[in-house]
């Protein structure tokens, strides 16, 4: 290889490196009012992620030297890392399961559960579905379990014989677990359900299929009100309730649920930045959750959290 060509080649390779290095220059680490530093590792539910992203964003303005990282391994995946002590906080769209709690105990990980906000699991149907006005939880359970329910006529004889298509979040999601527990009483869901980890796919599926039924977090319904129809739900012996911020907050909507973050008590005690962050989260989660599509809890719930944090730090 001639000298010139070699030089050209080296220049090329070097210029890639230089461009990378130049871009790598920090945008100027301005940190004056901050006194805390260190890392905070958070992982878990993708449902809770938008809230934690918002909290992390605000917190990094307050304490720019603290590195907050939020991952989305899912509620179950997050707990897997949490119970071995890899993370400081674990976001969850359901409560910790017995197996997971047992694992945590085995590794002597103590934790505190903090409720952050409410979400209303919304059951949605297509805009073209003109026949369903409301449903009972029992009806929902029946159609999501019984493989013999093929058309809407099987649900109620006054409905047309439009085939039903089912859309559900994937089995690793806390949303699936919640639905399975609350509606299906932990029985196995029918097999012909289209599962997707991406809630926008579910929205698209329900939107485009006349006989579709699906469920997802309230935020996905709220953003797509013009494309979907929600189904008012009634628990046994009660009137059907529409999912709205009010009904979700006062828990009159039957599929109202809390979403949580679990804090490792040891991190809370030993790492100043974690304690500070958790308090910051508790103070701001309500307002920030509204901004990203969830529903604020009443103030006394956040006060309960404050007390739980103080107890854990003793």
């Amino acid at each position: 290889m001639s000298w010139m060509k070699k030089t050209a080649l080296i220049t090329t390779v070097a210029s890639i490196a230089v461009v990378g290095a130049a871009c790598g220059n920090d945008k100027g680490g301005s940190s004056s009012s901050s006194d805390l530093s260190g890392k905070i590792a958070i992982d878990g539910s993708s449902t809770v992620f938008p809230i934690m992203e918002a909290v992390g964003e605000e917190y990094s303005i307050e304490q720019p030297d603290v590195d907050v990282t939020v991952g989305v391994s899912g509620t179950g995946g997050g707990f897997k890392r949490f119970v071995v002590g890899e993370t400081d906080l674990s976001n969850a769209s359901r409560e910790i399961k017995e197996e997971e709690a047992a694992e945590a105990e085995k590794n002597s990980i103590e934790y505190t559960k903090l409720a952050l906000a409410y979400d209303g699991l919304t059951v949605a149907i297509s805009k073209e579905n003109t026949w369903v006005k409301e449903m009972t939880l029992d009806q929902l359970e029946k159609i999501w379990l019984d493989p013999n329910v093929k058309t809407w006529k099987d649900v109620d004889s006054s409905y047309p014989a439009e085939p039903i298509k089912f859309f559900s979040p994937g089995k690793d999601s806390g949303t699936f677990d919640f639905f399975s527990e609350k509606v299906l009483e932990k029985k196995d869901m029918r097999k012909d359900v289209q599962l997707s980890e991406d809630d926008n796919v579910l929205v698209k599926g329900v939107e485009g299929t006349k006989g579709a039924i699906g469920y997802f977090g309230y935020a996905y319904y709220a953003e797509n009100k013009d494309k979907l129809k929600e189904v008012p739900l009634s628990a046994e012996g009660k009137n059907a309730v529409d999912p709205t911020p009010e009904t979700i907050q006062d828990l009159s909507y039957p599929l109202s649920r809390e979403i949580y973050t679990y804090v490792n008590n040891k991190s809370l005690k030993d790492k100043k930045q974690v304690a500070d962050f958790v308090k910051f989260t508790n103070e701001n989660a309500g307002d920030l959750s509204e901004e990203v599509g969830y529903i604020k809890m009443p103030q006394d719930r956040y006060d309960e959290n404050t007390k739980a944090i103080e107890d854990a730090m003793k």
């Binding site: 920090d26 992620f49 990094s60 809630d199 977090g217």
Partner: peptide, 30 residues
């Protein structure tokens, strides 16, 4: 991670990458 406010500072920093950020944004409701 998906949320991280800063660029990585060394090879032992937590990090995120373009495809992950894109994936996260596509799954948001807004």
């Amino acid at each position: 991670a998906i949320f991280i406010a800063r660029a990585p500072e060394g090879i032992f920093s937590e990090f995120t990458a373009l495809p992950i950020q894109i994936y996260n944004w596509t799954s948001r409701p807004q």
